[in-house]
Design a protein around this nucleic acid. Structure first.
Lengths: 195, 195, 195, 195
DNA sequence: GATGAATGAGCTTTCATTCAT
DNA sequence: AATGAATGAAAGCTCATTCAT
């Protein structure tokens, strides 16, 4: 990776962290610059506006999350196990690198006006959606999952996991989020399996 | 209802609409005032700050949604039917009065800093959560639903429906959202039912 | 005193207290109304504006302070004793009804723009100035005080006392302000006496 | 002095002039910006708030006045002469750079709420108070002044001079303020001298 | 006389973006 | 590439004053 790409990525990382913690509008460009030890003006040499930066971040996070799911997709195991692995990695991510999931929940999902131009129709999260689509279609193909509308299944999977991470952030769960993996994987499997 | 309460509620309605359409930070008090044909200063005679207004709105919407679910809870029918009715009313709401659900998704869920003081731990949405808790516990009591952690079930129900409404708003669904009611109700039932 | 005058005076009292404690600009008409248990609008039936109210108050306080000094002027005693009595009553006032002196220091002396029209040249504090003028001229007439420009003497007297009350308010004095009466009366006497 | 310090000081000068002429609350940040030919926002790159600016100004003026008095303190002359010189320089200042003294009278002395945090107990005017303390203690040490409480003497000195500058500003004096120097210096000397 | 909802101009402060260096 | 001072529009909020009741 060349020097320019390296700096571009470190801006993405710093901004991701701040946006996901404090929200898009409560994070300022000077905040990001200070967090990086970089000047305000120089950030604009890498991203032409705050909105563009926000759009690049969602693609960046979507790629990272998608790559994790691809690893599961490439494993040789039952669909039931795959579901468990995806839930586990999602919650693992929520514990160790929560910025990716929080960015999705707090920035992407919420500030639609920011992602209006250029991210229509899940375009900016397609890396991630695609992997789930592969997972689902393979599960249907091998007969383990019921054949249904993809978005009915996707909404279940992602809404459930996202909602649960939100509940965890609200501190309403009795136990650590990782304790819920089995329960939740089972619920998802029961919902999607061939009855 | 006296005159003052009436105006208070009409501010809630106007602000709810704007916040849910444009987001909390992209909606200004002048925007709300203009939408109401009211002066900026007068809004502050009813709500002491923009944040306070946002908190009152989430309680207001939570009450309205909760009241709808209570009606289903009070009906005499199978749990399976109740799930279907709740999904249907949720999507009906998303079609006819989307501001309530969008406010939940776009404002409450996303702008945590705004709801920090006074809404901790789902406090401001308790009217709504309580009804779902009643639904779930009755379902368990009559043996139709598997006994599991409430939040595992709640996260499924609400994450799923919320996520699906989001997908609908993104225009990625092939059909009108009401066409998915049966699929989704079935998935939820399969996930939660006594196996 | 008729009902109207009574209410007028109670507005003066309430506003005097608030203005002297919090300053002219930091006190609002609603503050005054609330302190009185009266409506905002009704205050305007008694005083046509906040500025007019402020001007009436300085006359009101000047009358009260002037009346106190007149009592001393009317006593039969040496000029030296009169000085002591005036200092003592001034500090007594500063302890028991500080609003009058603080209004003079914090509102009248400071916010010149408010008193521009109608209070030029000490006009609004003439009741008070006049009494000190009488005191001074009698002292000169009886030979106890040196004949000098009145304002040289007035500035000493009032600047000194006012400044001292300010120091007291700043909590920089070691002892209670009343302990300084003798020292200060002596200093003033030494400054003004026939050498 | 570097460029940034230079601009900081020129903001202090501009704001001092406006505050002392028009009062703290009647002077707006846009007023100051316009007087400087600078943008509103940029002022906040130098001072974090209007209150902070006001506090910096009182320290700035206190330093300037203190430095003038130090010069007198360092001269070799009688205490009587020093009093005259201090009175003369004070009135000279009141004529040529009245903003410093007026700021003290109209802004610092009056708007206590503004100077509440960080300027307690004359802290922000200590440069000035210290010099007068030195003057007084040297006068006592050499036997020319009566040993008395410092604040009794300080209140006389500063209250008198401040009060007189106020009277001058009110246009009630018959003659130019500089004509009163001898009278006033004599009064102060008589008050403080060893009898 | 008495009320207090309503007005709207104006305040302090913020911040994305620019640009001379 | 890098800096950070500078801009200025726009935000949230306040409050003297009015006026229908």
């Amino acid at each position: 990776m060349d020097k320019k790409s390296k700096k571009t990525e470190s801006i993405l990382d710093a901004a991701l962290l701040l946006f996901s913690n404090n929200g898009f509008y409560s994070t300022t460009i000077p905040d990001i610059a200070k967090a990086m030890g970089m000047s305000v003006g120089n950030i604009y040499n890498y991203f032409t506006s705050k909105e563009v930066l926000a759009k690049e971040i969602i693609k960046y996070s979507s790629n990272i999350l998608g790559a994790e799911i691809r690893k599961v997709n490439e494993e040789e195991c039952s669909v039931k196990d795959k579901i468990r692995k995806i839930v586990a990695l999602y919650f693992e991510m929520a514990s160790t690198k929560p910025q990716h999931i929080n960015y999705f929940l707090r920035v992407y999902l919420a500030n639609r006006e920011v992602f209006k131009d250029g991210c229509e129709g899940m375009l900016c999260v397609s890396a991630f959606v695609t992997e789930l689509m592969i997972f689902f279609e393979e599960g249907v193909a091998c007969g383990e999952l019921r054949n249904q509308d993809f978005f009915s299944a996707f909404g279940l999977f992602m809404g459930y996991l996202g909602g649960f991470v939100f509940l965890n952030g609200e501190n309403v769960l009795d136990k650590n989020i990782n304790h819920y993996v089995d329960d939740i994987a089972l619920n998802i499997y029961n919902a999607l399996k061939q009855q």
